[in-house]
């Protein structure tokens, strides 16, 4: 319990640091910070907008008052208003996040499924099987989502048109982006899982289970796999970060709705509140995921001792 509290505190600390960093970004941006929020040096904001932003961020106040206000607003979940969409950033994110969650969730499931299957099927098998498996893992984990996505589009939407090339309505439009997003992650996970599984298969309790008469497959599925899941949980933070980074490119490539695409459009249009809002949301989810990983690891494996 005490450990959890310490973790929680550290997580809040990271979020506070993240908010501070964005504050620094606003104030050290190239040019006027008021303009940075309203669309960069090329923007032509109306006098009302200028006055509103000055009021909202308190740019006429001393720096520490501005900082206090800024962190206070963020702590309340208020990321300001998108100057481009003219709605609060939280509302804009709320509208788009469903599509991204759908994509990220299906990609995560596919990646984990593929990695588990590949690890169980190839760990400690014939050297040639392993060689082919590790070569394809290397290629997959070295292939960025946008490259895989383009190649998938080329083959399955244009050369051999079986799947729609763009859009975010219906399950057909989800297939290609999911594969493009999942494959690099699957390659990375599968390397870790197979290594873990191979180590576990050398443990005495595996030999014991075999001696009890369980088949090789049953041993793998019932005994070894359970232990190999531990690193998978620990890797959740990495999976999440890859999914979110990949979502920016994948959503753009497949012309899908979602916060990745929104982030990209906002970065192009210099819509700072949206960019910062999504970034801070990513940091929040990262912290929460790592907190959950900690708790889960403690539940799965009581040997994990607090430090």
């Amino acid at each position: 319990m005490k450990r959890l509290a310490a973790r929680l505190l550290a997580g809040v600390g990271v979020l506070w640091g993240a908010a501070t960093l964005t504050f620094v970004a606003i104030h050290f941006s190239a040019g006027d910070p008021v303009l940075a929020i309203l669309g960069g040096p090329d923007a032509i904001p109306t006098p009302q907008q200028l006055a509103q932003v000055r009021e909202e961020y308190g740019f006429d106040q001393p720096l520490w008052v501005q900082y206090g206000r800024y962190v206070g607003r963020i702590a309340q979940g208020d990321f300001g208003e998108s100057y481009r969409l003219r709605i609060p950033v939280t509302e804009a994110i709320g509208k788009q996040i469903g599509a991204t969650l759908q994509l990220a969730l299906s990609a995560a499931l596919l990646a984990i499924g593929l990695a588990l299957a590949s690890a169980v099927l190839t760990a400690k098998r014939n050297p040639w099987v392993r060689r082919v498996a590790s070569a394809s893992e290397l290629v997959l984990s070295s292939s960025p989502s946008f490259v895989l996505g383009i190649l998938l589009l080329l083959v399955f939407s244009f050369q051999w048109p079986v799947l729609p090339p763009a859009g975010s309505n219906g399950w057909q439009t989800l297939i290609l982006p999911t594969i493009a997003l999942a494959l690099p992650i699957a390659g990375m996970l599968s390397q870790v899982l197979r290594q873990e599984l191979e180590d576990i298969l050398e443990q005495p309790f595996i030999a014991m289970a075999r001696a009890r008469g369980l088949s090789q497959t049953a041993v793998r599925l019932r005994h070894a796999l359970r232990h190999a899941l531990v690193p998978l949980v620990t890797l959740s933070g990495f999976i999440f970060a890859s999914l979110l980074g990949g979502a920016v490119v994948t959503e753009m490539l497949f012309a899908r709705q979602g916060i990745g695409r929104m982030m990209l459009d906002a970065a192009v249009a210099k819509d700072a509140p949206v960019v910062l809002g999504i970034t801070l949301l990513a940091a929040l989810v990262y912290v929460v995921v790592n907190l959950l990983v900690d708790v889960l690891n403690g539940l799965i494996d009581p040997r994990v001792k607090p430090r």
């Binding site: 979020l15 960093l21 970060a241 890859s242 990262y286």
Partner: peptide, 8 residues
């Protein structure tokens, strides 16, 4: 830690 919280 803070920098790590932001995806690349």
């Amino acid at each position: 830690d803070v920098l790590l919280a932001f995806p690349d």
